[in-house]
């Protein structure tokens, strides 16, 4: 009885010891991973800042305008090109019939 409990105790202790060591290692490796991740985050944040600056730079309105004129043939919008939804009410039928091109709503 006494011997058996001693064996059981020793067994439990060794299990606990092994468990603790592996846990410690696990924590250490995770900590290292975490530090690496933090480092990554900082680097990514720095990269994002650079990209944001670049994005703002290439989105200068003058640049966009030049590109739009050159590649898309876009020109500034004219007031007659803007139509409110209410203004279209009476013209619904024409659109359904698919005659936008001929009768057009401007």
């Amino acid at each position: 009885m006494f011997r058996r409990s001693i064996i059981l105790l020793v067994f439990a202790i060794s299990i606990a010891a092994v468990g603790m060591f592996s846990l410690k290692h696990e924590v250490q490796s995770r900590k290292a991973k975490l530090d690496a991740l933090h480092q990554d985050i900082v680097e990514s944040q720095e990269a994002i800042r650079v990209l944001r600056a670049e994005w703002s730079f290439i989105n200068q309105p003058a640049h966009i305008e030049r590109l739009a004129r050159k590649h898309l043939g876009f020109v500034p919008m004219q007031s007659h090109q803007i139509v409110r939804l209410e203004e279209l009410k009476g013209k619904q039928l024409e659109i359904v019939k698919g005659s936008i091109n001929e009768k057009g709503v401007r």
Partner: peptide, 9 residues
């Protein structure tokens, strides 16, 4: 929210 001034290292 368009960036006008930023600090980069």
């Amino acid at each position: 929210g368009i960036l006008l001034a930023t600090s980069l290292s």
